[in-house]
Design a protein around this nucleic acid. Structure first.
Lengths: 215, 215
DNA sequence: TCGTCACTAGATAGATCGTTCTAATACTAT
DNA sequence: ATAGTATTAGAACGATCTATCTAGTGACGA
């Protein structure tokens, strides 16, 4: 008996999320959905982009296109959550992080010819009134971003209630700027609202600091 | 010869935009596109919603669905421009107008069960990278709103450069809040960002007023 | 060695898509 | 009355959509 794993590892189901084909389908879906929307992106386009056959898709996603849409929203939500976590590091400077976030977003939008912005927004608006599972998945993704942002602002000594509101305001500013930037094919709205958001975070931070001196 | 128009007026081509069927198709398109998106809305759904046959659609919109999409974006842009003009009246209080705008939007979103928000945003994100005519139509609509908003802020004695930036910030806040409200099925984001925007307009107004006293 | 299971592969079905087509109807102007 | 134009009406077409189905492959355990 050979206790040592064989030379060829192949697709080992040891780790639950190691299915290469599944990941390829998911990555292609997330990208294509976020760019052209859910309804406009066909199954065939996803399969050819991920080099996978029909069989694999319905093997990994028995629920069909809608299950794939939910999974893609979740994947996009996780990816962006990690991006936010990367930029808004624990104990870091939230003002600088806000600046870096908007600058990074503006750079990405320009580099991708105004195609890649928010991985959720396009689909979220599309399905908000027509697919409850997908709407809920999008809402979960948004909520996870807001929760992390609120946490970081709190950790920067901003009061919880103000931090919560500020997180929503930053989110809305980013999403609105994404919309305007993609539509006008210009990164200026992102940079402009970025500067405004930096000012607001700085003001909230200063207000919180001054307030704490009164104690 | 009868110089007086006959009793029955019928569909008189005297006025260029009097085609009832055309208007019905356009209204249905604008509504359905803005709710479910461009790709997900079929021609048949539009025709049955507007009680019109195929023949009429391709008679009034020879360019097919894409021309209809462009026209719907233009129509939605005009409708919203009139709404902004209604709320931000010339010589009116821009702070109160900002408040009214967000409150009105929140009320509409709630009344329509989170279906009707921005008539442009969903389609704009969908087609930004795939249909240049529609992308341009959406950009034109956005630009017209921003221009009017900037004008009203200027007329309220806010310096032009600040007014321009503030208009973009307000736009982004509204659009982001629309996205979040529709996705989470709650009007709270709209009211929250509304309060923040009111504060910012008030601050810009006060700063402008104080600045003018130095002269 | 054989059976089992996970996955691959793509043909096929049935529905729906956007568009075009012919024909009929209504109204205007002469 | 008649010709001409605008509009209506929906059948029909080819393309494409999502989903299902059968068959085949390769790895692993008994």
């Amino acid at each position: 008996m050979n206790l040592v794993p064989s030379v060829k590892v192949h697709t080992s189901p040891a780790r639950p999320e190691e299915h290469a084909t599944r990941e390829r389908i998911l990555a292609a879906s997330s990208e294509l959905f976020s760019r052209g929307g859910y309804a406009a992106t066909g199954i065939k386009a996803i399969l050819s982009a991920s080099n996978a056959p029909y069989g694999s898709l319905y093997h990994f996603f028995p629920g069909g296109k809608e299950e794939l849409g939910v999974a893609a929203l979740r994947a996009g939500g996780m990816t962006y959550l990690e991006l936010v976590a990367m930029i808004f590091q624990e104990g870091g400077d939230v003002v600088a992080a806000t600046h870096n976030f908007f600058e990074g977003a503006a750079a990405v939008v320009e580099l991708t010819d105004y195609a890649d912005a928010c991985p959720i927004a396009t689909v979220a608006l599309e399905v908000a009134s027509t697919s409850e599972p997908m709407r809920a998945a999008a809402a979960d993704a948004f909520a996870s971003w807001l929760a992390l942002l609120e946490l970081r602002l709190c950790q920067a000594s901003i009061p919880e209630q103000i931090a919560r509101d500020l997180a929503v305001e930053l989110f809305c500013a980013v999403e609105g700027a994404f919309l305007l930037s993609r539509t006008t094919r210009s990164a200026e709205p992102l940079r402009l609202t970025g500067r405004a958001c930096v000012d607001r975070v700085a003001a909230a931070l200063q207000a919180a600091t001054i307030e704490s001196q009164h104690d």
